[in-house]
């Protein structure tokens, strides 16, 4: 696997302690730092949630079918990233790019569905200041949406270079990040939509 992404000169001569590419190690630390950000926010939400059983009634106003659709969309796009990764390992540029484009499109579908949800909720008066529940709802889903945007952007640049057969190992890195975005959503969906 090619790891010569950022080095200034001959990489082969640099002794490395482990066989694990440094990009992958960095990616996992990035994931760890993201987990504590979302972990902190989710813990705050949970502590309030236990204190406010009446939030169950407010959560009923979120659209579970839309949330479920988005869960399906994100899970499918994660599958695309896995396929892109395995295609990149086989040096199959065409399949890798096709799958990354699918992942990006599904990421965009996710954002569109989320925007439709937000619009409907705001129309009904459930704005970010309507109640603390809605403040948390917009905080958590908003932070997550920002990560979806970041993830789509990252996949876009990885795909651009991959299409020129460059930095193919980065497909895996983008995939790791995209799975994080996916998994965070798997926590948010039940916590904000389903739990009554």
């Amino acid at each position: 696997m090619d790891t010569s992404d950022t080095m200034t000169h001959d990489v082969a001569s640099i002794p490395a302690m482990s066989e694990v590419p440094r990009g992958r190690i960095a990616m996992w630390w990035l994931v760890a730092s993201e987990i504590v950000i979302f972990g902190g926010a989710v813990c705050c939400y949970l502590m309030f949630r236990f204190r406010h059983p009446e939030w169950g009634a407010l959560a009923a106003h979120t659209s579970t079918p839309m949330g479920a659709l988005n869960t399906l969309v994100l899970l499918t796009s994660s599958l695309n990233m896995v396929l892109a990764h395995s295609a990149a390992e086989r040096q199959d540029i065409r399949a890798a790019c096709r799958n990354m484009i699918m992942a990006m499109l599904l990421g965009c579908v996710f954002l569109v569905v989320k925007a439709i949800e937000y619009t409907a909720e705001i129309r009904q008066g459930y704005t970010i200041t309507a109640d603390l529940f809605w403040s948390f709802y917009y905080l958590l889903t908003g932070l997550h949406a920002l990560h979806v945007i970041a993830g789509v952007t990252a996949i876009f640049f990885v795909m651009l270079s991959a299409s020129k057969r460059r930095h193919l190992h980065r497909v895996e890195m983008a995939g790791i990040y995209w799975h994080l975005v996916d998994i965070v959503w798997l926590f948010l969906f039940p916590l904000l939509y389903i739990a009554g």
Binding site: A32, S33, F38, G40, A41, C44, L132, F136
Partner: peptide, 25 residues
């Protein structure tokens, strides 16, 4: 640092929302 700073980043976003949009975290 990496493991301690995350929750404060979330907390700072909440503080900023309290200051700008007048949420009530």
């Amino acid at each position: 640092f990496v493991f301690a700073v995350g929750p404060l980043i979330a907390g700072a976003v909440m503080l900023l929302l309290d200051r700008t949009l007048h949420t009530g975290f």
